[in-house]
Design a protein around this nucleic acid. Structure first.
Length: 111
DNA sequence: ATCTTGACTTCGG
DNA sequence: TCCGAAGCCAAGA
């Protein structure tokens, strides 16, 4: 599959902000939801300036396993994102695509 | 074609 | 807060 749309959006995430896999999946309309977003990011090519470290799990949890885990944490902290107990404060760093249709976390899916 | 593995999320207990 | 279960789906074996 082509993950290009995913990477293109990730490239737009500004320094100091993060997005969740679920949010990313919805924004790009991935059929498999967050899981698929995760697959895409796992296959993320390096050396192309894609800020992969700015993609986190629901609730701001850092889900990446150890080889890259420490790198992600380091990169995030290097841009001012505080990481506590393997998680970042979404209330402060969640990226809300300005002007876009992504709203901040809707708690109840309509009715 | 079947089965396993994930950089997932949500819900209920 | 911490599981377990269920829904999801692509890739690799």
């Amino acid at each position: 599959m082509g993950w290009a749309p995913v990477y293109n959006l990730v490239k737009k995430i500004p320094r100091g902000r993060v997005i969740t896999y679920g949010q990313l999946a919805r924004a790009v309309r991935l059929r498999g939801g967050g899981r698929t977003a995760g697959r895409a990011m796992a296959a993320c090519p390096s050396g192309r300036g894609i800020p992969w470290h700015r993609v986190v799990g629901a609730g701001g949890r850092l889900l990446i396993r150890e080889p890259l885990a420490s790198l992600q944490r380091r990169l995030l902290e290097s841009e001012g994102v505080r990481v506590v107990e393997n998680r970042v404060a979404l209330r402060e760093h969640a990226w809300t695509m300005k002007g876009g249709k992504e709203r901040t976390r809707r708690l109840t899916p309509e009715n």
